[in-house]
């Protein structure tokens, strides 16, 4: 069954939607959209370094994304304007990544694959990495869920309950880097942020608790993945952007219905 490329593509896309959901909600709640982008863009640089050092791309993207996350978090904590630091880091990482990849691979390289994903080329090893990564992300998030929620709500309340919000932030960054490394093959570095935020945002109008919002984000994310893949197959469009388009349409519908059900 796994021998058919479409089956692998579907499983890959669903795996990424599954991994992105529990992190996406935190990215939304903590207003880390730009932070997620910076981490994702750094993955391109990770690809270049991995190719140069002949190590697996997964390892390269994971390490560089993680490094980026901690570097940016460290800088913003020291009182430098967060928005400014993220703006610099996000674009600089992307530009350096693109230059580095071209230097390593030569101009014949298909940059599109790293920017927008290459879902139809997903192999069995990629699938194993995607689902292994997704399961690891879920283990981390379930383990730290309560503490992370409290730290997101109020660092002071967290301290008063003997929860260290800094530690929770580090776990979150680790999980974020994992999702980036898992997702780059499917949607590419440019659109990982969209896959994190849009399903979570689409789930918001129907959720009364944080848990409901995660479950909604999983469901809508998987829907977007399947719809997007079907669209890509039907209209011969690139798969990664098609998935994000599907997610955006779902978000629009959810927002309209959410408004109505409130009034």
């Amino acid at each position: 069954m796994l021998d058919h490329f479409l089956v692998r593509a579907v499983l890959g896309a669903v795996g990424v939607a599954f991994a992105a959901a529990p992190l996406g909600v935190f990215v939304v709640w903590r207003r880390m959209a730009y932070f997620g982008d910076a981490t994702a863009h750094a993955a391109i640089l990770g690809v270049a370094l991995a190719l140069a050092a002949s190590v697996p791309v997964f390892a390269g993207t994971l390490l560089v994304s993680l490094g980026m996350a901690f570097a940016v978090a460290g800088l913003t904590k020291r009182g430098v304007g967060a928005d400014m630091v993220l703006g610099v880091a996000s674009h600089a990482a992307l530009a350096f990544g693109l230059v580095a990849v071209t230097l390593v691979e030569g101009p014949r390289l298909d940059l599109q694959a790293y920017l927008f994903g290459d879902i139809l080329a997903v192999g069995k090893t990629d699938l194993a990495l995607i689902w292994g990564g997704a399961i690891l992300v879920w283990i981390l998030m379930v383990w730290r869920w309560q503490a992370m929620l409290l730290a997101t709500l109020s660092p002071d309340l967290a301290y008063a309950s003997s929860v260290d919000p800094e530690r929770e932030k580090q776990v979150l960054m680790l999980a974020l880097a994992l999702v980036v490394a898992v997702a780059i093959k499917i949607v590419g570095a440019l659109l990982i942020g969209a896959l994190l935020i849009i399903p979570a945002a689409a789930a918001r109008p129907f959720a009364r608790t944080p848990e409901q919002m995660v479950i909604g984000a999983v469901g809508l994310g998987v829907c977007a993945a399947l719809l997007g893949l079907w669209g890509a197959w039907e209209f011969d469009t690139p798969a990664g952007p098609s998935i994000v388009c599907a997610a955006a349409v779902i978000f629009a519908i959810s927002t309209i219905f959410g408004r109505k059900s409130h009034s």
């Binding site: 939304v28 109020s154 944080p210 919002m213």
Partner: peptide, 21 residues
């Protein structure tokens, strides 16, 4: 605490809040 700034994107009932952490 003095006050909490809760992002409107975070759905949280009072009952759920009491179950943290």
């Amino acid at each position: 605490p003095q006050s909490l700034q809760i992002d409107p994107s975070l759905p949280m009932t009072v009952g759920r809040f009491l179950n943290l952490p």
